[in-house]
Design a protein around this nucleic acid. Structure first.
Length: 720
DNA sequence: AACACCGCGTTTTTT
DNA sequence: ACGCGGTGTT
């Protein structure tokens, strides 16, 4: 491995970034400019040229997927496995740190991780215990309050409500929540980061160790860092300039969950000796797509400034379709997908993007009607499914009896005669004596505070957990999981369920056992049992949103979910005021700027063809609205845009402009084809010899035909 | 403990 | 419009 192969094939800007001298570096990486490539090559450079040990490199990403990809690409580039690199998410790294220093971080050794759903349930329980009306104190709001403050690095004692009773109550709930987590030995996602930060802040010996260890720190998607993550990086890098951060201020779309675009905007102020490299050459999209995306994002204030360019040609114009309503919009998209597929484009390379997940329904319906396979991203992930979380609750309780959220979940699932009254008594006892639910259950039984029947049921539950634990010692992880599923009677419970989902659930349980088998083969964090590692991984990496469909299928997802992906053909629906930009974001300039960035992200996903659509009427929450076309559309240069008005079989009362061109054919016109028979022109494109028409034939379906070859014969008919 | 009914909210989502 | 969650009924 030599230097040449690390820098070969890089453009000037990429090479400047990869070979940057030690010191802090900010890489402003436009969409499709080879950002991951730069990170991967930079790490190779550090290893091979700067001779930094893998042990001394920390690379942080935002998703596990990105972390895996980076590790793989580094190994592929260097053609050897690279052990010892720290590549992972902020959360994954914080978790590893806390496992190594659990005692210094004041955590029990077997601490468990709460996911968002666990957190929500815990908050609801605390509200009930505090006798607070959850319509006045919506748990979601409390959860947001807690997480927002944790993301800012703020503990309850840092907050001052003054006389505001609302704030006071919130702070007090936050305080209760923290106490409950501490007692149970559980940490939520934000807590992982906060604890890690506090560990470093308060234990200079530990901080010193990691500062010395990491000679280089690389951060991907830097525009998405929140306050605590940024504080982390500053602590770790200290004054030594060893940060190499890569990001794009124009793609910051997670402000609503605490990301601060200011971090990237003001990076050079905090690190004055920063070398800035702009990656502006785009290897993904055509000229038209980039020109349009550049024009849209150019309207935003406070940009670091960047303009994407390409050596690829202009490519196809961007197609804009003004639909009558959302069904018409979906029909248009579906028709285009069908004809593109006939023309040789794979479904897999086509994506439908939208602002809100509710919009997927219309598209799904028309896709189903047309027998086009599709896959939706989003929704419940594997480890978030109720039946899976039920099993995990048992496993967590086996690891840590103090884990109250796990106790709450497992205690009466499946139903075993432990009713609300019994649980109320246990909770009350736990609250008064500051005990865990497990301990409280034991004492309540011992002190005979329950009816014989309730005491019997509760005793059997406690014994079930203890007995199961006794059986697990010699088993592999997957056998342990299988044992727990059987012993808890969850399998029987789901097998007997009559809600139609029983079979799915059983399959998921088997899948969980299978996941355990896979995990058996993987490495285990030092000092951890396979089960502990498995539980942490289940929380930190909840799995894919859907079983991967092998079938070639159209990809449907929100614009947010599309970030980082690319497709040959992209459709963006619902470009309407109130929907995109969303009405919830229309009240302030910052949120609008983020919506605009979201639009930019969406447009730059497209490699060759970009279709934009808006509807003139749309049903939202049951009632019909007449939205204006999105302001983003106004910013797209006319020369990159072609308006499509395919009025298929729809009568529509509003505009009926027809675009004629030099083909002599126009949408809506009836034609006759020698082999396909009669049809209607949906769309035309191109000029002269390459001009094509999309025709919907009565019997042969929709096809794109070269007009010069097709011998289409216009049939006289009244144009709409 | 299972089922029916009612009322409310309704952007984006990873860890 | 629609689904979810909370409450009340059998």
């Amino acid at each position: 491995m030599d230097i040449t192969s690390i820098i070969a094939g890089l453009n000037d800007a990429q090479r400047a970034a990869v070979t940057a001298p030690p010191g802090s570096t900010l890489v402003l990486a436009g969409a499709g400019s080879g950002k991951t490539r730069v990170l991967v090559h930079r790490i190779a450079w550090l290893l091979q040229v700067e001779h930094i040990s893998p042990w001394g490199i920390l690379a942080v990403t935002f998703t596990n997927k990105a972390a895996r990809e980076m590790q793989q690409r580094i190994e592929a580039l260097l053609q050897q496995p690279i052990g010892g690199l720290w590549v992972g998410t902020f959360h994954g790294l914080a978790h590893r740190l806390l496992r190594a220093h659990w005692s210094e971080a004041q955590l029990p050794q077997g601490f468990q991780i709460l996911d968002a759903d666990d957190q929500y349930r815990l908050i609801k329980r605390l509200l009930r215990e505090a006798n607070l009306d959850d319509s006045r104190w919506p748990p979601r709001q409390v959860q947001r309050f807690i997480n927002r403050n944790k993301d800012e690095g703020l503990r309850p004692q840092h907050l001052d409500a003054g006389r505001d009773p609302y704030q006071r109550q919130m702070i007090s709930l936050y305080d209760n929540y923290e106490a409950a987590c501490q007692r149970a030995g559980v940490v939520d996602f934000a807590e992982l980061l906060l604890r890690a930060h506090e560990l470093w802040r308060d234990r200079s010996d530990i901080l010193q160790h990691y500062r010395q260890r990491f000679g280089a720190i690389l951060v991907d998607e830097f525009q998405d860092t929140n306050a605590i993550q940024y504080a982390w990086l500053r602590l770790l890098s200290d004054t030594e300039d060893k940060l190499f951060v890569v990001g794009d201020d124009d793609q910051s779309i997670y402000g609503w969950r605490g990301a601060k675009v200011e971090h990237i905007q003001q990076f050079q102020t905090h690190f004055p000796n920063t070398r800035v490299v702009r990656l502006e050459q785009n290897y993904r999209s055509t000229g038209n797509i980039l020109a349009a995306a550049n024009a849209v994002i150019a309207q935003n204030p406070d940009r670091l400034g960047k303009a994407l360019w390409t050596t690829a040609g202009e490519g196809e114009p961007i197609r804009l379709y003004s639909a009558y309503n959302e069904t018409d919009e979906a029909r248009f998209v579906t028709d285009q997908i069908r004809s593109l597929q006939v023309a040789g484009e794979s479904y897999q390379q086509m994506a439908i993007l939208y602002r809100t997940s509710a919009q997927s329904r219309q598209f799904e319906e028309t896709l189903i009607q047309s027998d086009i396979p599709y896959r939706i991203y989003g929704g419940l992930r594997f480890f978030e499914r109720a039946e899976i979380k039920d099993v995990l609750a048992y496993l967590r309780l086996l690891e840590n009896r103090q884990d109250d959220p796990a106790f709450e979940r497992a205690v009466n699932q499946p139903p075993r005669g432990i009713g609300a009254r019994t649980l109320e008594a246990v909770r009350e006892h736990a609250r008064i004596h500051n005990l865990s639910l497990w301990q409280a259950a034991q004492t309540v039984i011992r002190d005979q505070q329950l009816t014989a029947r309730a005491a019997g049921a509760l005793t059997r539950f406690l014994q079930l957990i203890d007995n199961t634990q006794a059986q697990l010692a010699e088993l592999t992880l997957s056998e342990q999981i299988a044992r727990v599923i059987a012993a808890s009677a969850l399998r029987d419970h789901f097998a007997q369920s009559r809600d139609g989902k029983g079979q799915d659930r059983l399959e998921n349980l088997d899948e969980l056992i299978h996941a355990g088998q896979q995990s058996d083969l993987n490495f285990t964090l030092e000092g951890q049992t396979p089960l502990q590692t498995f539980l942490a991984q289940a929380a930190l990496e909840a799995g894919d949103t859907q079983a991967s469909a092998d079938e070639d299928s159209v990809q449907l997802m929100t614009l947010h979910a599309a970030k980082g992906l690319e497709f040959a053909v992209v459709f963006i629906g619902g470009l309407e005021e109130g929907l995109f930009p969303h009405s919830m974001s229309s009240d302030n300039a910052q949120k609008l700027a983020e919506e605009r960035r979201l639009c930019y992200v969406g447009m730059t996903r497209a490699r060759r063809r970009l279709y934009l659509a808006h509807a003139e009427t749309r049903r939202i929450h049951g009632s019909v609205s007449l939205p204006l076309a999105s302001r983003f559309l106004r910013d797209i240069p006319a020369e990159t845009l072609q308006e499509v008005r395919a009025r298929n079989n729809y009568a529509h009362p509003r505009s009926s402009r027809v675009s004629h061109n030099d083909t002599g054919l126009y949408p809506g016109q009836q034609v006759l084809h020698p082999t396909f028979g009669s049809g209607v022109i949906l769309n035309t494109e191109g000029h002269g010899a390459s001009a094509r028409a999309q025709v919907n034939f009565a019997t042969a379906g929709t096809k794109w035909l070269i007009i010069a070859m097709a011998n289409l014969e216009p049939i006289a008919s009244a144009s709409t």
